[in-house]
Design a binder for these strands. Structure first.
Length: 825
DNA sequence: TGGTTCCACAT
DNA sequence: CAGTTTGGAACCA
């Protein structure tokens, strides 16, 4: 008998020779050993609802004799218990049905739906390992104590234990997990690397304590210590495998490795008949291709595609044009990729340019290194999600917020003895998708520029409403006694109110309060801390987005706890609160400019910032607990573009400048990526002149000046380049865009153009439609001024000038001599 | 207006 | 406990 403390990393189950399920937990012990725990004490089960009380006995009889033969396997029930459970708040006697094997659950469930004594089944769609983690209260990465016997097995672990008893005894998180980041480089001619032709030429690893390794199959003189030469690509792949096996990482990390590195390695390994048997159980890597989304999983090791997580977690907060590795790393780490164009790797490799190959090895290692560093940076957030949701890190890293919330709820509702609702079927999802309700309130601004702007916003508005008004699927009621109605809600063109019982706190408010107080605790610690601990910050931030996702979850058609009425009530309260604030802002002599869902923008007029802050305190005194209106910022100037009277879908479009001179632009996102440099430049500069210098005529003159230069061909050609990527094979395009047309010509020239090739073109002067005039930089004689003014520059700035009273004509008119002559709208 | 289509990112 | 699982913008009649 041995006792052991360890941190679970990966959990699954296997089937024994006797046909029983055996839970398997891979992890790392406190002293750094790889461990595998087997647990055969857990039995699969689900619930069955009897139609009526008198059906219980015959139903149990029927269940216990139920056998379904699907040779060679027989599915059968092993035991039936009568249990009391809550179904959305209401207690009922139902049957807990234990079965022989996890796969029996779905087999038997299908049969039981035809039983006249039963009205349905529940919790039959929860994977066995999830069920295990939930029921045993085990959270991956958090310390577990296990008692059991050591045993022999083929898994590649230092210790193998058959568990007798396993439990989470404290909340210590895994310290210094072994992380191994990797990256491959491919020698490809042009466009997307093609795994059928283009070989992997190098692979780099970066791990804890500066562990570095680059493997490549062309040698050069005086290589760095970490460089390993092999004879060919096949050996490179074998050494790739060995390196991982020897390093024994807990996490393997790549940047877009689900989508590129691993699938590529798979294809190349296949060519040489090499098995990528990286799993600790000796099994190969598992690839799953779900329509568009690839995932690569390794048994016993958590594979994290940190790109996926960064995009999911930071899409709204990280202000970048693209989530490519260089941009993200530069922004988050202050360190980007090595400065050498990857497009030239092919040439260097083919021509045996030793110096360049050496440089590409450094480049390769740098990619692995920044991937490693990004992982470390994101780890506190990932850990927080793992701790809250209770699932393995590789899974959590790929989950949407809806899934995170759902899995969190599935775990937490156990405390309330709640049954987990079934996932909706396709028809139900469709039906739900048609249900809509009113969203947040928008106070539409008068377009124009404003000075001395104050912004207040509600701190976590939706979560605090859920908590303050006890909004929950379990408290919503038809019984108007002891319950409080929501504000009026428009349902099918009729004003309605939903009622929420306040007799007992619902489980959703309780759970959300937990998240919010947990977050507040972290923020309290942070306040005392002089140098804001980034780990704590990441943790409080992840709790914030988790809390904020709750509302969206209630309105998400595929959610188990979908509830349109709850979602509609939350926004109804939100509208009430923000309208109330807006009214008070006006009453207090400020000028309201704009408001959206949880925020209000107003100008001070002849009042002061201090007045505004005192007023804020006043408002907060009246708000229920946890709800709070916050001072967001003060902006000396701002410009609002959206129009009053526009349809309700009017997009928020505004730009603000803060006291530090930093310009915050919202809603002008169309000007990015595939626009020409000149268009982006003009828009940026126009904002600067208007907001920094408060010089509208100046901005106008500047724009006219640029347009004049465009017509005079004074703009360097480089600034006119438009870049678009080929997404399918040239022949597959039905609509031939300019970039496709150029790609065709490139191909005729004998250049290799494949899916993924980025085409950079310039629209030239001449006859014909736009695509006929698209040329490469070196083919360009003279760009089409008209096109660039009308399709690039004007769209970028016209909206801005429009609100200032100038139409497009005034921007292009060259003859006008003084500003006063410009046509005012 | 709503229903398609495209696209991220990797070399 | 399985194979219908993205999400947002641009485009298009």
């Amino acid at each position: 008998m041995a006792t052991l403390e360890f941190f679970p990393i990966d959990v699954d189950y296997i089937t024994t020779l006797a046909g029983r399920a055996l839970i398997r937990i891979f992890g790392r012990t406190v002293d750094g050993k790889k461990v595998c725990i087997y647990d055969d004490t857990f039995e699969p089960y689900f619930y069955v609802f009897p139609r009526k009380q008198t059906d219980i006995r015959p139903l149990i009889e029927k269940l216990t004799t139920l056998k379904i033969k699907d040779t060679p396997h027989i599915s059968f029930v092993t035991k039936v218990d009568i249990v009391k459970k809550h179904i959305i708040g209401e207690e009922r006697e139902i049957l807990k049905v234990f079965v022989n094997h996890p796969s029996d659950v779905s087999v038997l469930k299908k049969e039981i739906t035809f039983f006249k004594e039963a009205t349905g089944v529940a919790e039959s769609d929860i994977q066995f390992y999830k069920r295990y983690l939930i029921d045993k209260h085990i959270t991956p990465l958090v310390s577990c104590t296990v008692e059991g016997e050591e045993m022999e097995d083929t898994v590649n672990c230092d210790i193998i234990l058959k568990a007798r008893n396993i439990q989470q005894t404290n909340d210590a998180l895994i310290k210094n997990p072994k992380i191994l980041a990797f990256d491959i480089e491919v020698s490809s001619t042009l466009g997307t690397p093609n795994p059928k032709e283009d070989p992997i030429v190098m692979v780099a690893f970066y791990g804890n304590e500066g562990y570095s390794k680059v493997i490549t199959w062309k040698s050069f003189s005086q290589p760095k210590k970490h460089v390993e030469f092999v004879s060919d690509e096949a050996e490179l792949i074998i050494r790739f495998k060995d390196t991982i096996t020897e390093y024994k990482p807990d996490y393997i990390v790549g940047y877009f490795s689900d989508g590129f590195d691993f699938p590529y390695l798979r294809d190349r390994a296949e060519k040489y008949k090499i098995k990528l048997a990286l799993g600790l159980d000796g099994k190969p890597i598992k690839f799953s291709k779900r329509t568009d989304i690839n995932t690569t999983r390794i048994k016993g090791i958590a594979h994290i595609d940190i790109y996926k997580f960064i995009v999911r977690a930071m899409r709204d907060t990280l202000d970048v044009e693209s989530f490519d590795l260089d941009t993200v790393a530069t922004k988050l780490l202050g360190e980007g990729k090595a400065d050498i164009p990857i497009t030239e790797l092919h040439h260097a490799w083919e021509s045996n340019d030793q110096e360049k190959i050496r440089a590409y090895c450094d480049y390769n290692l740098q990619d692995a290194k920044i991937t490693y560093r990004l992982t470390n940076l994101m780890l506190p957030q990932l850990n927080e999600f793992v701790k809250v949701v209770g699932l393995p890190i590789d899974e959590v890293s790929r989950m949407s917020f809806g899934q995170l919330i759902e899995n969190y709820l599935m775990r937490r509702v156990q405390e309330f003895n709640e049954i987990i609702p079934n996932k909706p079927d396709y028809a139900e999802k469709k039906r739900r998708a048609t249900e809509s309700y009113e969203g947040g309130y928008v106070y539409e601004p008068q377009p124009g520029t404003y000075n001395d702007i104050i912004v207040f916003d509600f701190k976590s508005l939706f979560p605090t409403i859920i908590s303050a008004h006890n909004i929950c699927v379990s408290t919503i009621t038809l019984n108007q006694v002891d319950s409080i109605p929501s504000p009026d809600i428009l349902v099918n063109r009729k004003l309605t109110r939903y009622y929420f019982s306040h007799a007992k706190e619902g489980f959703m408010p309780v759970i959300i309060k937990d998240i919010l107080t947990r977050r507040n605790r972290i923020k309290e610690i942070m306040k005392k801390d002089e140098k804001k601990d980034p780990v704590l910050d990441a943790r409080q931030y992840s709790l914030k987005i988790l809390a904020n996702s709750f509302y969206g979850y209630l309105g998400f058609s595929a959610a188990r706890w979908y509830n349109n009425a709850c979602a509609a009530s939350i926004t109804a309260y939100a509208r009430q609160y923000i309208k109330n604030v807006i009214t008070k802002v006006k009453e207090n002599g400020f000028n309201v400019i704009y408001g959206d869902t949880d925020s209000v923008f107003f100008s001070l007029g002849n009042k002061t910032k201090k007045d505004a802050l005192l007023f804020l305190q006043e408002i907060n005194r009246e708000l229920p607990s946890l709800m709070e209106l916050e001072f967001e910022n003060y902006y000396p100037r701002g410009i609002f573009v959206m129009k009053k009277g526009d349809e309700k879908g009017a997009k928020k479009k505004y730009a603000l400048i803060d006291e530090q001179g930093k310009i915050k632009v919202t809603g002008f996102e169309s000007i990015r990526g595939d626009w020409s440099v000149i268009a982006k430049e003009v828009q940026k500069k126009v904002f600067e002149i208007i907001l920094k210098d408060n010089d509208i005529p100046g901005a106008l003159t500047y724009t006219q000046q640029i347009i004049k230069q465009v017509y005079a061909k004074e703009i360097p050609l480089e600034k006119m380049i438009i870049k678009k990527r080929l997404k399918k094979d040239i022949s597959d395009y039905e609509n031939i865009g300019p970039h496709v047309e150029v790609a065709k010509r490139l191909q005729q020239r004998g250049e290799k153009v494949t899916i993924g090739t980025k085409i950079a073109y310039i629209i030239n002067e001449g006859k014909g439609i736009v695509r006929e005039r698209a040329r490469l930089l070196d083919e360009t004689e003279s760009y089409d001024s008209e096109y660039y003014v009308k399709n690039q520059i004007l769209p970028a700035v016209a909206k801005i000038f429009e609100v200032l009273g100038y139409d497009e004509k005034s921007l292009i008119m060259q003859e006008q001599s003084s500003l006063s002559d410009f046509s005012k709208k």
